[in-house]
């Protein structure tokens, strides 16, 4: 892992007036261009962790480095925030303007980018999320998935190297979820962006390069999706469900079938089961 984009070093965080820390001694490195999924149930510290990535929360102990910049350094705050873009759960509460394109222009305007360049960035960002045709629409008339894509475009207009999505699909219907995930996938594949996806949907983690499971403010599991999900007992102990495919194979294994636990995708799972029948 050479030159990680994010370095989290022994980070602990306690909310003001809270007794228990929300993060306890977390150390992580996020590799440039990787797709990392952070899993955990409510109160596991996953959202708190995300908020330390761009200096919204400053760790009470330890430090976070964004391309070598310490998030506690207020002079570099704008550089840090334009490097790590963040998208939140509720699209309604992220959109500031009454017209889609004006909203996407908000971040570059704050950064003092020249008007012509802003226009270019806005058009580019809207095309990247497939919302260019809606650029003159009013955001409150769009569907949830469309609004969330506008929110993503608003972050893309900063030209960040890394995008952190904090449960971006939690308030969306299945169609909206699919739209948003497809957009994220495209950003990663076509633009080589580093993506950190915070979620509690197992299925959204299957395509990740790496899955980090948080519990009680600590990193409970960390590894490839196959490695993480095959630890079915540990996942259950963390109060998390494993993907349905893993669940099925786990059950079959307990019934005496010899199946690989790391067959994550539906195809892999079907092939593995078919192979058993062929043997007989």
């Amino acid at each position: 892992m050479t030159d990680p984009i994010l370095k989290i070093e022994h980070v602990s965080y306690t909310y003001p007036e809270a007794e228990e820390p929300a993060l306890r001694d977390v150390t992580l490195e996020i590799a440039r261009g990787s797709f990392v999924a952070v899993l955990g149930h409510n109160g596991s510290g996953k959202s708190t962790l995300a908020k330390t990535f761009n200096g919204i929360l400053i760790p009470t102990e330890g430090r976070v480095l964004v391309e070598g910049m310490d998030t506690a350094d207020e002079d570099r705050l704008l550089d840090i925030r334009r490097t790590v873009g963040m998208v939140f759960q509720n699209p309604d509460n992220q959109i500031v303007a009454s017209v889609v394109e004006d909203d996407v222009a908000f971040a570059p305007e704050n950064l003092g980018v020249a008007p012509k360049e802003i226009r270019q960035r806005v058009d580019d960002a809207l095309r990247a999320v497939g919302m260019y045709d809606f650029r003159l629409h009013a955001p409150h008339l769009l569907s949830g998935g469309q609004k969330q894509r506008v929110a993503i475009a608003g972050v893309l207009a900063m030209r960040p190297a890394c995008i952190v999505l904090d449960e971006p699909t939690a308030m969306l219907d299945p169609i909206g979820r699919r739209e948003v995930l497809a957009t994220v996938e495209e950003l990663r594949r076509e633009r080589g962006m580093t993506v950190v996806l915070i979620t509690h949907h197992m299925s959204e983690c299957v395509d990740a390069d790496r899955v980090i499971v948080m519990n009680g403010g600590r990193v409970a599991l960390d590894g490839s999706p196959k490695a993480v999900f095959s630890q079915v007992e540990t996942m259950r102990a963390e109060g998390l469900a494993v993907p349905e495919t893993t669940e099925l194979i786990y059950g079959l294994r307990q019934g005496g079938f010899d199946l690989p636990l790391d067959a994550l995708s539906v195809d892999e799972c079907a092939d593995a089961i078919a192979a058993i029948f062929k043997k007989d």
Binding site: D92, F106, G112, P115
Partner: peptide, 24 residues
């Protein structure tokens, strides 16, 4: 909502009107 919006605005580099440009 106001609280979440403020956070989202900070994440998009809002720092009052200093050095702000406009697209239009």
């Amino acid at each position: 909502r106001a609280d979440e919006l403020a956070t989202a605005m900070e994440c998009r580099c809002y720092h009052a009107g200093i050095g702000r440009t406009r697209m239009k």
